[in-house]
């Protein structure tokens, strides 16, 4: 006959016994192990940030092309980690904007893509101003995508980059819905959430991102915002920069030079 005292005793002992291996797992936490390694650039003194100088962008799309190849996003699939938008403001006060195929092939025609195979041709003399805006993941300081992931498959690294664990993502799409910048999509091959990682595999080894490397005009720069001598960090501190959609409280870390109020 089992007594109440004995039952409680055994239960407590059982729980303690089960908890021990869990405590062991904590001791060898992979995150801490990774942080202890010193062959990668990361840790408390690094916070990756991006700078886009829109004055320099000509909309050639080489960055998009390079990104797709580097990160194995199927070349012909209509999704992309980074893209370039074209804004054309006409004298009648209207804003025309497009980004056909994410500008993978550049902007080869002056016609604005209206979708559904329709185009709108704008005469040169009607244009007030026109410019290009490259976009990519903002690696937000307060990322809504990480907040809403139901299983914790998307996470922020210590150096500020938001990544997706392809082995853990369930593909619910909540992160895609939560991103105010529309940078996320489902990978056509892996069928999990996919996004720009600032080429994390490259930057942590001291390389530039694929898009930065591919840009012939220096419109894109990546750097460490915590390093006072970093060129990106210096420009962000000393010049007049802006970010996108800061009203969402996401604290985006892609900074823009020369952005116009029409850009959203």
């Amino acid at each position: 006959m089992i007594t109440r005292r004995k039952f409680l005793k055994n239960t407590i002992a059982g729980i303690a016994g089960l908890a021990l291996p869990a405590a062991g797992a904590e001791i060898v936490s992979p995150r801490k192990l990774f942080a202890a390694r010193n062959d990668t650039i990361s840790g408390p003194n690094v916070r990756w940030a991006f700078l886009v100088d829109t004055y320099k962008c000509v909309g050639c799309g080489l960055c998009v092309k390079a990104c797709k190849l580097e990160n194995e996003v199927p070349y012909d699939a209509n999704v992309t980690r980074t893209w370039v938008e074209r804004y054309v403001l006409t004298k009648d006060g209207r804003i025309h904007a497009d980004s056909p195929k994410g500008a993978r092939d550049g902007f080869t025609t002056s016609k604005i893509d209206l979708g559904e195979g329709r185009f709108h041709d704008i005469k040169k003399e009607d244009i007030d101003k026109a410019f290009f805006v490259p976009k990519l993941c903002n690696q937000c300081e307060n990322p809504p995508c990480v907040q809403v992931c139901p299983v914790g498959a998307t996470y922020q690294t210590a150096d500020g980059v938001v990544l997706v664990d392809r082995k853990w993502c369930i593909g619910c799409g909540y992160c895609i819905m939560a991103c105010p910048y529309g940078v996320r999509f489902f990978h056509p091959v892996y069928h999990v959430a996919e996004k720009c990682t600032f080429c994390y595999h490259r930057i942590t080894k001291g390389l530039k991102t694929a898009c930065v490397q591919a840009c012939p005009f220096g419109a894109r720069m990546v750097g460490n915002i915590k390093d006072p001598n970093d060129p990106v960090s210096r420009i962000i501190r000393t010049e007049r920069v802006s970010v996108l959609k800061d009203e969402y409280g996401t604290r985006p870390q892609v900074y823009y030079l020369g952005i116009s109020r029409e850009v959203i």
Binding site: P74, D76, A77, N78, V79, T80, W83, H96, A97, D98, S99, K101, G102, L114, G115, E116, K135, G173, I176, M177, G182, V183, R184, F185, F186, P188, V189, H191
Partner: peptide, 24 residues
């Protein structure tokens, strides 16, 4: 190579490249 959402989404005017109707 299909992109999730492409089969049932039709885009009109200025829509971002990754935007589709993901929740159907």
């Amino acid at each position: 190579m299909y992109v999730h959402g492409e089969a049932w989404t039709i885009k009109e005017l200025f829509v971002l490249p990754n935007e589709y109707i993901y929740w159907s």
